[in-house]
Amino acid sequence: MKRFAAFPLFLLVWMGLTWSLHWQDLLAGVLVSLVVCLLVGRFVALSVLPMLSPRRIFWTLVYLPFFFYHCVRANLDVAYRVLHPDTPIRPGFIRVETTLPSRAARVILASSITLTPGTLAVDLVDSSLYIHWINVRGKTHADYHRAVVAPFERILKEIFR
């Protein structure tokens, strides 16, 4: 039965996509949502529904503007590097250790740093993240950690506590 816990979520997305309250559209939505529940309901019930607690939603709302700011800064940074006549890049593959406990948190961390200044997550093995950095600064793993993952980790830790 657990897999049907995500049914309202699917129905909401369906209603958003069709944007009508006609009974035929709603009936089709109920059928489609049931099929989707049977197919992937278990994964969504495990990974998405525990996210819907007030504390987590609050920290997610804190995270989004922060993420957006870094995202825009990343783009201006890339724009500078691309338009500069000598393309000033200093790329490298670095390894950082993350202290986040759950797998979902690490995946979100990896996706976030892919969209933010000059970094691209290449691989995620247990607690170590391999990152391609377009402009490597610092020498040790501690330097890398402070520059690349620390700001995101602080908020993600609150979301996934």
Binding site: C71, V72, A74, R81, T114, G118
Partner: peptide
Amino acid sequence: LGTIGLVRLPDVYNRLQAGTKCVTL
């Protein structure tokens, strides 16, 4: 800007950086 980066940067990883970030945003 993203597609200019795709053409100008030297290797596949750097191109991926410019392409993904700029074109997504």
